[in-house]
Design a protein around this nucleic acid. Structure first.
Lengths: 114, 114
DNA sequence: ATATCATATTCCCATATCGGAATATGTCAA
DNA sequence: TTGACATATTCCGATATGGGAATATGATAT
């Protein structure tokens, strides 16, 4: 078997940073493929393809308007992620876990330098 | 370029369902590779490899004890996901978005059947 | 009908993936 | 030392990726 396809669920769709950036950009309202491409510095086909994945898992909706396509966020599709990660919320904000957190941060900085 | 490696960040590490299952299993405390393999019905090498990915992004820690290895959850490493998705929390729990939610659910059920 | 604009799709390549099978590493006990 | 046990690593195959380049589709205006 190969890696789980990106269109399998929201977790996979959102794993790619560019797609998270797209969702962030859509947080302020509807946008067009061209607008998004310009704002994020990506090519038009790249944006189209990413939006296709996001649409496949239902996290964006489209509205056709002449030759434009207005994409908008569909927040509730992100709920599964929110609910899954929320179950671990209690494991931070304690003093000991803040230490773990700090160590993790240092570790990831090390990784960047090497 | 190929798909973003699973060890790039927590988002990618957690995209795989088996790895989320592992983290869920570790929610109740430390566990051994063998225990996890049995509880999740996965082979030992598969579990070892998944834990390797989770360890690479800092979401689990290991404690060596003789020939055993006790893995434990490191919750705070999940914070980036929590904080990212939290920004979209306001987009549900409104009546209109509950409708979107329902539609998305129907859509995904359609997908399963076809 | 034709040209132009906005978007989607196809083809390509280099790169990772996940799982299974086999094997290596490391630890303990007799 | 040898054997048994727990875990990690390597090698393999089938599959999917993301981006670039080129092209197709589709809508509007002239």
């Amino acid at each position: 078997m190969a890696r789980t396809p990106t269109t399998t669920d929201v977790f996979n769709a959102v794993a790619e940073a560019s797609r998270r950036d797209l969702l962030d950009a859509l947080g302020s309202g509807e946008a067009t493929v061209g607008e998004l491409a310009e704002r994020l510095g990506l090519s038009q086909p790249t944006v189209s393809k990413h939006l296709g994945v996001l649409r496949a898992v239902g996290v964006v909706h489209v509205r056709v308007d002449g030759k434009h396509r207005w994409y908008r966020l569909n927040g509730p599709a992100l709920k599964p992620i929110h609910e899954w990660v929320r179950r671990f919320e209690r494991t931070w904000n304690t003093r000991l876990d803040r230490l773990d957190d700090l160590l993790a941060e240092l570790q990831s900085q090390e990784k960047k330098q090497s």
